[in-house]
Write a protein that binds this DNA or RNA. Structure first.
Lengths: 222, 222
DNA sequence: CTGGGTCTGTGACCAGGTCACAGACAGGCC
DNA sequence: GGCCTGTCTGTGACCTGGTCACAGACCCAG
């Protein structure tokens, strides 16, 4: 029981079907604590290793020259930060910026161990590949939304996504960054939503009144 | 000499550091010929196998509900069509549509062999992963352009990219599809380029006059 | 030479991004 | 309590870009 007790860090590898050796190597990695608001990496950085999130939430943003931002994807517990893989696999630098949205605990798998696991452990490989394919699909969907979708639809979807107990706690600026639009545009759209009786707004929060209508708006074909 | 002669199909695997067994398995796959204009797959299709392009050129487009299109990426000889990997690795369906831009020869590696190669052959794995990471970076860059860039910059870049002998042979509609804009917008932008003396336009072609100016426009920060 | 398909140009209009503000609100400080 | 400063929000003016509706130009097959 004494030696067998694994730190929480190994829990995430549970469903992965690894050899004992690999399991031990992963369990030995020290988890790192990141406070809310910390920046895990910036655009142009080169990957240090492969990052897996144990708890909390990390959000990866793309930033334009004008300072406008858009949420590329969020990394939840048990998921890996795919951007880190790019550097390890193809020598690409990061193009996004990773912010810690909720205080998080992460494990960093160094280059060498990562390469070793990719070569020897089919389970680990599957984990990385699935995560990667998933992100690729996510980013493609996002591109589709940005290229062809309306702000109205993206805003409605984001509100539904962020709602907790019928309300969203976020400033208009934060909402704008998520959907890759401008703060003023969010202000005007929210006002339109309000006029239609879909939401109530207050400083730093949006209360959802007519969820069905928002769902319809989010799913609008054009 | 008789047995050693490999069909062209195996040439692409040359730089890949594979076992003889794998090399033979790949060489045995029958290359398929695709005529210009053929559609390799559509959005929603499920992957049949992993596609590698031997010659020609395949372009993958994303299509919006209004019929507007945007070029996701092009697959050149020696490269793989990453979208096919999504299905194989994560069960995702295609989100793009692959058109044969120049008559192409491709090899289709069926599911089973693909999985086997991924497990056993480090060289093949590296090939797939690098291609994948590359595409991920491409799509992210494209997203950045679409979300934050101007049509003027994307159009100028596309003209420079497509130019052969100082001219681009493409209709305004084709140019629009490449950059994810509308035909009318391309018409007006080209007219503006013309007024500044950067290009001459004719039905189905654009002649580049001031390449330096176009380069400046393509690199514009905003 | 003519008729249908394709390519291009244009005006009008709307959605959305940018700029420049002004007012509203919150929390800290005297 | 009143005041100050920073943040959040609302608004008008203006520009780019996407959409719609057409008209004219071009091209080639019959």
């Amino acid at each position: 029981m004494p030696v067998e007790a694994e730190p929480a860090a190994a829990g995430w590898a549970g469903g992965m079907d690894l050899s004992d050796r690999a399991r031990r190597a992963l369990a030995a990695l020290p988890p790192r604590d990141l406070p809310r608001g910390a920046v895990l990496f910036r655009a142009g950085d080169l990957a240090q290793g492969f990052v897996v999130v144990l708890s909390g939430r990390i959000e990866v943003f793309l930033t334009g020259p004008s300072g406008r931002e858009i949420l590329l994807y969020a990394v939840e517990p048990g998921q890996s930060c795919v951007q880190t893989t790019l550097g390890l696999m193809a020598g690409e630098t990061y193009s996004g910026e990773a912010h810690v949205a909720e205080a998080a605990q992460v494990v960093l798998i160094p280059r060498g161990l990562f390469a070793e696991l990719m070569d020897d452990e089919a389970g680990f490989r599957g984990f990385v590949l699935r995560a990667f394919a998933q992100r690729m699909a996510d980013v493609t969907r996002l591109l589709e939304q940005v290229a062809f979708g309306r702000v109205e639809a993206r805003l409605a979807a984001t509100l539904l996504d962020l709602a907790e107990g019928g309300a969203v706690l976020a400033t208009q600026g934060e909402l704008a960054a998520r959907i890759g639009s401008a703060r003023e545009v969010v202000s005007r759209r929210l006002e339109a939503f309000h006029r239609q009786g879909w939401v109530e707004t207050d400083r730093g929060q949006v209360r959802l009144i007519d969820v069905a209508a928002l769902r319809r708006a989010a799913a609008a074909p054009l």
